[in-house]
Design a protein around this nucleic acid. Structure first.
Length: 399
DNA sequence: CGTCCACAGGAATGACGGGCGG
DNA sequence: CCGCCCGTCATTCCTGTGGACG
């Protein structure tokens, strides 16, 4: 009893008076800092466009393009926050809805989120899309002002569900309503604009802002700023930040990755009761992050996807030269028989394979082998040992 | 140079559960 | 409570296609 209490108290205390962290939240992906280094021009562009809202007129629609972790979301939120503050100061009606299309990945949920931002209560499900749309129009009619809709990670929505929602949202302005609705679309796929309906495209492409990836030097500046807020003075060894920046720069200059790396390195240092964060901690953090994410992804996979993944793993172990859809499917059907699970069509497996690809677990490249047909060649994309661990339960049954 | 393989991937459809309006 | 409409998963049927083979 005593021991437990003391132990618990120790845990509390060690967190409360952390030797390492001053404010760990400053490294979280949701944190919007006061300074966004190396994004001045994008902030100025977006701010200039949206400033029209302060005069009560409709800002042009904006299309924002940039790879993950290039600050698109942070810049957008940052500018919108300043804008609404300024609007309140000037007593102008400006509202915005921020929607992450990866989380709200159906037309219904997008509309529901918009409704919610307008203060309209909408059930999780049960209404027709048209009904939600009608309610939003009604809400907008009462509101009378500038309304900005941000659609973050729009590509995941469009690719799966098409662009009719965009069409609807763009048409709001023509419904005979006094409200001005502007769209900000954020995507990491350049080709997205090309996929869209021409009318939608020209309307969305009114303004275009590009976010290039950060290089290692820029990442270093970002980390320096954040580290000042997040860590106690002098706990970072000199090379820690450059190392985090360099590792993240190798992976497309993703600032979120760099920040994660730094945060986890700090957590490891703390766990080890170290006074300093060292490069060793960063390296540990690097592999820990990779392991955790893949483990989590694999475990949360639906049953059939796990079986498919297992089939791929078996083929790779048997050293099958090119792993193709056909191979996977035949191994998969065998596995299903062994386990006693109903097996799906090849069509479905094809979809599951591409899902595994977009999750990053495998890379499936479409290859044409002439007379021998056109197929996907699959290669495992993560540490095999981690996959084996994640699929442990299966292996005992099947071998 | 045409064939034809081994699939990719779109469209239509259905089964099913969740959840609301009435 | 029923009927309706969602979203998800899965099937069926289908057309499309790059390039080695003959």
């Amino acid at each position: 009893m005593w021991c437990t209490m003391e132990y618990i108290d120790d845990v509390f205390l060690s967190v409360l008076r952390s030797k390492i962290f001053k404010n760990r939240d400053a490294l979280s992906p949701d944190y919007i800092p006061e300074v966004l280094p190396h994004r001045e021009s994008q902030i100025r562009r977006l701010g200039g466009i949206l400033a029209h809202a302060l005069k009560g007129s409709k800002p042009g629609n904006v299309f924002i393009y940039g790879l993950t972790g290039t600050g698109k979301t942070a810049v957008t939120k940052f500018v919108l926050r300043r804008l609404t503050l300024k609007a309140r100061e000037l007593n102008v009606a400006v509202k915005y809805a921020y929607i992450n299309c990866r989380q709200s990945d159906t037309p219904y949920r997008v509309l529901a989120d918009i409704a919610e931002a307008l203060g309209i209560r909408v059930p999780f499900t049960g209404l027709s899309i048209a009904e939600v749309y009608r309610r939003i129009l009604r809400g907008l009619n009462e509101y009378k002002g500038v309304f900005i809709i941000v659609l973050d990670e729009l590509d995941s929505l469009i690719k799966r569900k098409g662009d009719d929602i965009l069409y609807k949202l763009l048409r709001v302005n023509e419904e005979g309503i006094e409200v001005k609705v502007s769209l900000i679309c954020i995507t990491n796929d350049v080709k997205l604009l090309e996929i869209l309906d021409p009318r939608v495209r020209s309307s969305l492409g009114e303004e275009e802002i590009i976010f290039p990836p950060y290089n290692a030097l820029e990442l270093r500046d970002i980390l320096l700023f954040r580290a000042k807020e997040a860590f106690n003075d002098g706990v970072l060894e000199e090379d820690v930040i450059p190392l985090c920046a360099a590792l993240a720069a190798k992976e497309h200059g993703d600032a979120r990755r760099a920040l994660d790396l730094l945060r986890v390195a700090g957590e490891i240092a703390e766990r080890e009761n170290s006074d300093k964060v060292t490069c060793e901690h960063v390296k540990k953090a690097y592999s820990e992050i990779e392991k955790n994410t893949t483990l989590e992804v694999v475990k949360s996979l639906p049953l059939q996807a796990k079986i498919v993944l297992h089939a791929i793993l078996l083929l790779e172990e048997k050293n099958v030269k090119p792993i193709t859809t056909g191979h996977i499917y035949s191994v998969y059907t065998n596995l299903c028989k062994v386990i006693g699970v109903s097996c799906l069509t090849q069509r479905r497996i094809s979809d599951i394979i591409s899902q595994l690809d977009t999750l990053g677990l495998i890379s499936a490249e479409i290859v044409s082998r002439g007379r021998y047909g056109r197929t996907r060649v699959v290669k495992i994309n993560v540490d095999r040992k981690i996959l084996v661990e994640a699929l442990k339960d299966w292996r005992s049954i099947t071998h």
